[in-house]
Design a protein around this nucleic acid. Structure first.
Lengths: 296, 296
DNA sequence: CCGGCTGATACCTGCTGGGTATCACAGTCC
DNA sequence: GGACTGTGATACCCAGCAGGTATCAGCCGG
């Protein structure tokens, strides 16, 4: 009873994602027959059918879906082991901080200033992410630490420290009727006929129904906002990611957003600990400038 | 630049744990030379020295310690992928519930009764663990769900639901002077000369200093208590794990212990969700009998 | 019914994981 | 000091299997 090998997991993930042996083989840089064999042997070894071969592509079985999820997690863990070990062996390893592009801009600025001013500061590398990408980067070791946002991001599996709490604002074209309001509610901004809220893909890649445009990157969204095609509700501090022709109006009943600094619980790194300490140190001093924009 | 294979990780973990190529090879069921080669190639591929060969066994480098930790996590994830997939393919899969032997006995009893009375209940298998073992079992897929205890167990990386809160009691021989007290404090029970508190191994396997006996299993501890050689402070409900000649005295300033039900956040299993729902349902009804023993 | 998809099969080849035998080196014991 | 012991490293061989090419076998759309 020998273990699964990561190669087999990679192969399976490729097939499951492409639902097509030929394409998966191409992506893996091997020929199709060995791939078929490998998957077949994997099924035999597990004693479980993973794919329904349907003479027109393949479909995942229930067990296949379980393995897809678990295999991704396992491969992330293996990749993390590799990267973290490499970094541990590199004497002048820069810390990698992942953060959502455009979010918590000023906090990040202050954090970097703070770190630069510290004498023993390790070099920091910033990795700007699309939404929800930080968790993956932490899990697979591409990043050492991340700025994330509750309740948006999935923080399961990480150690975190809250940095600050803020309200949300609606971003509207300055000429829009709602732009002159002092404050708004979620009911106001939902179902504005000429500014439908954009739809992000779900985890499985499909889009929810609704009138708004489909987006899957922040730059798409930014452009749609600039064009006046969509209404955006974001944390007040994200105004740094700003449009000159737009105004921000507080949405009083939108849930508060907490910016947290997160790191893998296994991290025994001195550098990560000191970075977290620096970040937590900003908590008291730096609240003012942006938290104000959220208060009524 | 090919990935690490699980075989290489297993090999490295074996060598790191044994700090000896020969013994590690024996444990792995292979000869020593291929093992040396494999580790050497691993080091070359990672570009990092993992071991200091010292002509008298081997020692881990810093990078080696990082890889040991990460490799264990990765291997757990791979093992979990394998087990969970197998279980997903098995139609009449019993759910595996891990719980500390002797703890939360009555809660467990009620939970099982509850589940047995439900018509659509999946079969449940109970896995009794030593302290702290549940997390590992959840992580590597041997268990689907676990009863754990805050603040003792490390809950990082799991979804949890609190089940109930209780105080702690000191277990003392009935004839001991302290046994007649109505209540005790931590100051009372620490440094009782004739009943020193037992010492558990740390994560690295070494024992903290102190006068008490060293233990690493619950049965060892139980016997030492029965022999009147050690004083024990445990959650009130653990009195089910009882000694006839002993009494339990509340320790009023010991931290409260919360019994939680925990499961891997990736678990999309219907069966796990329904078990958690059943457990949460007991919360209101079943508090009385044992929570009382903790209240003053 | 044919052509173009799909994945499966057959068969060959070369890499590499694993085995045995042996070496090189450092303590240790007499 | 020299033989001994125990460590990991090296040398060499073999076999298994990952991967390639060529081909087959169903199933669809035209």
């Amino acid at each position: 009873m020998d273990d699964l090998e990561t190669r087999e997991l990679r192969y399976f993930v490729a097939v499951a994602e492409e639902t097509h042996f030929g394409r998966a083989a191409g992506r893996l840089g091997i020929a199709q027959p060995p791939l078929s064999r490998a998957i077949r042997r994997l099924e035999r070894r597990l004693g479980v059918q993973l794919l329904d071969r349907d003479r027109r592509g393949v479909a995942l079985t229930d067990a296949g879906r379980v393995l897809l999820r678990e295999a991704r997690a396992a491969l992330d863990a293996v990749a993390a082991a590799e990267r973290r070990t490499r970094r541990a062996g590199d004497p002048k390893r820069p810390l990698v901080l992942a953060t959502k592009a455009g979010a918590s801009h000023e906090l990040l600025q202050r954090l970097l200033d703070e770190l630069a001013s510290e004498p023993d500061g390790a070099p920091i590398e910033i990795l700007l992410c699309e939404v929800g990408e930080q968790a993956r980067l932490l899990r697979n070791g591409r990043a050492d630490v991340a700025l994330m946002h509750r309740p948006f991001d999935d923080l399961a599996g990480f150690d975190t420290e809250d940095l600050f709490v803020e309200g949300q604002v609606a971003i509207l074209p300055a000429v829009h009727p709602l732009a002159s309001r002092e404050q708004l509610t979620l009911a106001d901004v939902r179902n504005v006929p000429d500014l439908p809220i954009a739809r992000w893909p779900r985890l499985d890649g499909s889009y929810p129904d609704g009138p708004g445009p489909e987006v899957h990157t922040q730059s798409q969204l930014a452009q749609l906002v600039a064009l006046g095609r969509t209404l955006l509700v974001i944390p007040a501090s994200s105004r740094a990611w700003q449009w000159p022709e737009h105004v921000a109006v507080p949405v009083v009943d939108a849930p508060d957003v907490t910016t947290v600094i997160a790191w893998p619980p296994s991290s025994h790194s001195q550098a990560v600990a000191s970075l977290v300490r620096s970040a937590a140190g900003l908590r008291g001093s730096a609240l003012g400038p942006w938290a104000e924009s959220a208060s009524p």
